[in-house]
Design a protein around this nucleic acid. Sequence first.
DNA 1: TAGCGAAACTAACATCTGTTAGTTTGCATG
DNA 2: CATGCAAACTAACAGATGTTAGTTTCGCTA
Lengths: 189, 189
Amino acid sequence: MKQETRKAEIIKTAAKLFKEKGYSAVTMRDLATAIGMKAASLYNHINSKQEILKAIIITIAEEFTRGIDHIINSDLSNISKLKEIVALHVKIAANNTNGMASLNSDWMHLEDQLNYYLQLRNDYENKILGIINSGMESGEIKQGNPEIIMFSMLTTLRSLYLWVPKKENLNSEALAESLSELLIHGINK
Amino acid sequence: MKQETRKAEIIKTAAKLFKEKGYSAVTMRDLATAIGMKAASLYNHINSKQEILKAIIITIAEEFTRGIDHIINSDLSNISKLKEIVALHVKIAANNTNGMASLNSDWMHLEDQLNYYLQLRNDYENKILGIINSGMESGEIKQGNPEIIMFSMLTTLRSLYLWVPKKENLNSEALAESLSELLIHGINK
DNA sequence: TAGCGAAACTAACATCTGTTAGTTTGCATG
DNA sequence: CATGCAAACTAACAGATGTTAGTTTCGCTA
């Protein structure tokens, strides 16, 4: 097996540029320059611009899927499951800030993989909804509109990539703890 | 004064397309086709693609600025001010769903107006931070990291445009009420 | 040392892009 | 009916874009 380092470098650099300007506004010449080569040389390592986007987004989406399946299959309480979801998002956002930006903002530019991505996202949201509903039935969670709760929680978590890199002094565990506390108990004294 | 309807239609249609694919991926030919004219004809009404983006984003950003200044200058409690901010976001998101998408996702493609936009956004965030800090001092709000609270609240509110249009049966007042309750008191029973 | 292969390069392509110039159309007013 | 003007059109531009073809470079192994 050859070293995949060059391909990995291309994908990593692309994710950084996609975060700054979005997929459509980043050209293959931009990407090549950022790496220090000519655009045509990129094609020794990748097949298309689209393939780069797919590698970035699908990798993370599948990571989320594996994460939530593990949480769902645990025997934690519903509130604890939600806390684990917060921790999952904090961890992925911390490890792959740039990729998360593409997942959030450039998924609509997926071509062949668009339907697959949408399916993963839909399944993910339904699993969270299931936990919230179950928590309401068991009395752990206040009655309310489960979709509003999921929306609020998930948009906060999905936007973590914007915010995590600014706070390097705060470690992941502490951030996950603060966020869980906030989302579950609110701000009211 | 001539009728501004054609220009307004161009900006409104552009906002819709920008929401779907992002500023960079929407061409002037796409926009013209969506309206039912040729690309060159657009220039009888607008000066550049960039001007359209500016019209969309700066209009909303200034609306937020006016809104928060009004709230800040009221004599409401800090918690009530936060509730008013929620209502402000719900109202703007409901009235201008497509424009909010550009504000959130395409602000970095502003050229001349980029610094002005960033200044408005920064001022806005600092005003919210001021309310949260003041609420902690007065004992209305639990001690905690004010930036995490603001981040969580603001990312939820900024993403409302993704979600409001799906829930046409829910009116703005009810949504604002539910969201306030959720953000302030959390989900814990 | 010869030569093989990976990975860089130059050159070019066909198409798309924002925008301008110049022309035509058709309605409202004299 | 004549005419003036807003707003549409066609044609074209100069440059950017993703990608391919063919060539060169250079370190490793036989």
